[in-house]
Write a protein that binds this DNA or RNA. Structure first.
Length: 487
RNA sequence: GGCGGCAUAGCCAAGUGGUAAGGCAACGGCCUGCAAAGCCGAUAUUCACCGGUUCGAAUCCGGUUGCCGCCUCCA
């Protein structure tokens, strides 16, 4: 059973066969580090995180590169605005990016190279392109000549002729074709610069990815990913540069994730509807965000709303609620049940529940995978319900087996891997802070209510419960005592 | 103007030829002092609309309508 991946280049799903058997080389465009990361970055990064985890779980040895663009007009603008160096800006946002990634439970890529650390390689490729006649210099700038590369437009599905006709591109008289793009920019005052054969300057945007991917993955590699918006011009230009320079197929499978809207509106700075990862994670549990992001197919657009996050939160509560219940049922903590096995290889035989692998093999259908996860949750809840009356624990083995599946599936989706009490404690902490509620006061109320219930004074007990409910605090009377949670 | 995508229950959403997953919400039942949680049950004769192919279509083809994205920095 082969993994099938939708290839943006061929516009169809293809059987996945890596160039080198058992090994996958994957490059994903990382952020330009001039500002905080937003939910759009989160989606891209979570999608490829799951793809990475899944390929690893399917037994591939995955070499995963995600770059930082740390030299760029926007970084320079930021630096000049705030009177600090470009390095200060990029350092600061790289660090912030790593914090965000950690909060989202992201696996670190094999390499996280920076553009500025590969100037030598960039100059090397630009030189090759000039030597081969694909690039030309003007006043210290170097441009790629799109007309010289015959396949220009093959990824984005455009023809040069069509594009020039209805073009919105400003005409730069120094370019031979309006779609020629800059490989090397002559430096202006107050800009970072490097020595080059064409004078002092800095790399253009697209060339760094060609240079860094070649450096770590080779001139041909398996998977190149990024947001849909990067198809044109960024990835189109990468193909042109790399294939022109190296004379071989650049990438076998192009994978692009869809965009996020906020309340049905395109997210943009001008509309002021930008949501940073930090803002979201302050309000919602990071795993709820992951669940939300993975609940749609990765190529579809996805609408971020408070309601959607609420639903995802309820979903995570349900999963962790089940896990807590399993612990109670088996009288041991979850990690003991399964053993701690991060990214272990899984096969048809490993998983007993549903067709998780089938779902994921089909172009990483995480929505379907999540459905299987919930079906498993329901199944286990049912078994435990059935066993509640008996001392025989008839379903004990099945519960163990399928609870382990939940962890394995969760491990690939990057959710449900916390001990349940940690999840609920953190959630409660976050909520009580957010709502400004004192947990010890709640405990006091619960004790009062317990007293009332023991005295069969249910009116008083219910009054306390209503009082707490008014503050969005929900009580649950369980065998072991009353627990509470925030709505 | 060019290129591409989407339209499935109140909402979100999977499903690309064999008779509609899953989640949220709401409803009925079990459980409970009552709740909550959990479980069970009933919920789309039907997949924007029209036509075609087929024994059979949400799924393929043609057309219509509506929404969206890219073509400029963008995940």
């Amino acid at each position: 059973m082969a993994i099938r991946i939708y290839n943006s280049l061929s516009r169809q799903k293809e059987d996945f066969e890596p160039m080198e058997s058992g090994k996958v080389r994957m490059y994903v465009c990382g952020p330009t580090v001039y500002d905080s990361c937003h939910i759009g970055h989160a989606r891209s990064v979570v999608v490829f995180d799951v793809i990475y985890r899944y390929l690893a779980a399917r037994g591939y040895n995955v070499f995963y590169v995600r770059n930082f663009t740390d030299v760029d007009d926007k970084i320079i603008a930021r630096a000049n605005e705030s009177g600090v160096s470009c390095d200060d800006i990029s350092e600061r946002y790289i660090q912030e990016f790593h914090e965000d990634m950690e909060s989202l439970n992201m696996v670190r890529p094999t390499m996280e190279p920076r553009a500025t650390e590969h100037i030598e390689q960039i100059i090397g490729i630009v030189s090759i392109l000039i030597d081969k006649g694909f690039a030309y210099t003007v006043d210290g700038d170097v441009y790629f000549s799109v007309e010289k590369y015959e396949n220009y437009g093959k990824l984005s599905g455009r023809k040069l002729e069509d594009m020039v006709a209805g073009s919105r591109v400003e005409i730069d008289p120094r370019k031979k074709n309006p779609y020629d793009f800059v490989l090397w920019k002559a430096s202006k005052p107050d800009e970072p610069l490097w020595e080059s054969p064409w004078g002092k300057g800095r790399p253009g945007w697209h060339i760094e990815c060609s240079a860094m991917s070649a450096e770590y993955l080779g001139q041909s590699f398996d998977i190149h990913g990024g947001g849909k918006d990067l198809i044109f011009p960024h990835h189109e230009n990468e193909i042109a540069q790399s294939e022109a320079a190296f004379g071989k197929t650049f990438v076998k499978y192009w994978v692009h994730n869809g965009f996020i809207n906020i309340d049905q509106e395109k997210m943009s700075k001008s509309l002021g509807n930008f949501l940073t990862i930090k803002e979201i994670v302050n309000t919602w549990h990071p795993e709820a965000l992951r669940l939300f992001l993975l609940s749609n197919h990765y190529r579809s657009p996805l609408d971020y709303t408070d309601q959607a996050m609420h639903e995802a939160t309820t979903g995570m509560d349900r999963i962790y609620g089940l896990m807590a219940r399993v612990e109670q049922y088996l009288e041991k903590p979850i990690p003991e049940i399964t053993g701690k096995d991060d990214l272990q290889v899984i096969s048809d035989k490993t998983l007993t529940s549903g067709n998780f692998l089938e779902a994921m093999d089909d172009d990483f259908n995480t929505a379907k995978a999540i459905a299987i996860l919930f079906e498993t949750v329901r199944k286990i809840n049912r078994w435990i319900d059935e066993d509640d009356d008996s001392k025989t624990r008839l379903h004990r083995d099945s519960v163990i087996e399928e609870a382990a599946d939940i962890l394995r599936i969760g491990n690939i989706l990057g959710i449900a891997n916390l001990p349940p009490n940690v999840y609920f404690d953190r959630k409660q902490e976050r909520m009580t802070t957010l709502y400004n509620i004192d947990p010890s006061w709640v405990e006091k109320k619960i004790t009062q209510r317990k007293q009332a219930r023991q005295n069969k004074d249910f009116a008083a007990a219910d009054q306390i419960r209503d009082e707490l409910l008014a503050l969005d605090i929900i009580l649950e009377d369980r065998a072991g005592g009353t627990t509470w949670k925030m709505k």
